[in-house]
């Protein structure tokens, strides 16, 4: 009787251990995924291929864009967000193809595809030792503005066992009473956002 109980206990323990091992094993995707390099705004963040420093975030209800001598205004059902950064390649020329706006609850907003070939926006070609301004244009839901993270990676595919930049967007434009400052129109033709 005692022996039987012992066997039963052993089986139960083995099952628990196996279950724990199965649950704690990392998935292939996690084992070979990106290596996040974290940073904040106004702070240089270095990765294997490039350096990035986010300077400014602007919010707007409309985007003005002049393309092929045609003036266009883009509206959105949410908010436009423009992130301005300085970027430099480290040892070889390369391009920044992707950027994401990760909201506070993990909603991932891809770069907006509304404007055709906007200047200084992905693909952003970088050369070693030549800092340049790059901008990222997003359409987001207004409640995703605070506590967001800018995720950037070079080239097209998600990095595998390589650096991925995560920059906390913690210095947002605010009005005097602490509300989010939202402009009416931001032009994406010039780096300073002014209209020609």
């Amino acid at each position: 009787m005692k022996r039987r109980l012992a066997t039963l206990a052993l089986i139960v323990i083995a099952a628990v251990v196996l279950f724990a091992m199965q649950r704690s094993t990392l998935r292939y995707d996690e084992l070979t995924g990106a290596i996040p390099v974290r940073g904040r705004m106004h702070e240089a963040v270095s990765t294997r291929l490039f350096d990035i420093k986010v300077q400014q975030v602007q919010f707007a209800r409309k985007i003005a864009y002049r393309y092929l001598s045609k003036d266009q205004v883009f509206t959105t059902s949410g908010l436009w967000a423009v992130v301005t950064a300085t970027l430099t390649a480290r040892s070889e020329s390369m391009s920044i193809m992707r950027g994401y706006w990760d909201g506070p609850q993990g909603l991932r907003y891809e770069l907006s595809d509304r404007a055709v070939n906007p200047p200084d926006m992905p693909p952003i070609r970088l050369d070693p030792g030549l800092p340049r301004v790059g901008r990222f244009l997003f359409e987001i839901r207004p409640d995703q503005a605070g506590g967001a993270t800018l995720v950037v990676w070079p080239q097209g595919l998600p990095p595998r066992l390589d650096d991925e930049v995560h920059i906390a967007l913690d210095d947002l434009p605010r009005t005097a009473d602490g509300e989010l400052a939202v402009m009416d129109v931001v032009s994406i033709n010039r780096p300073d956002g002014a209209r020609r």
């Binding site: 266009q72 205004v73 883009f74 509206t75 959105t76 059902s77 949410g78 909201g103 909603l107 991932r108 907003y109 891809e110 907006s112 595809d113 509304r114 359409e139 987001i140 839901r141 995703q144």
Partner: peptide, 17 residues
Amino acid sequence: LRDDPKLIPLLHPGMPE
């Protein structure tokens, strides 16, 4: 169907269009 019609638009989370 917003501004000029755009084909194959990217639609973002929680933003009806």
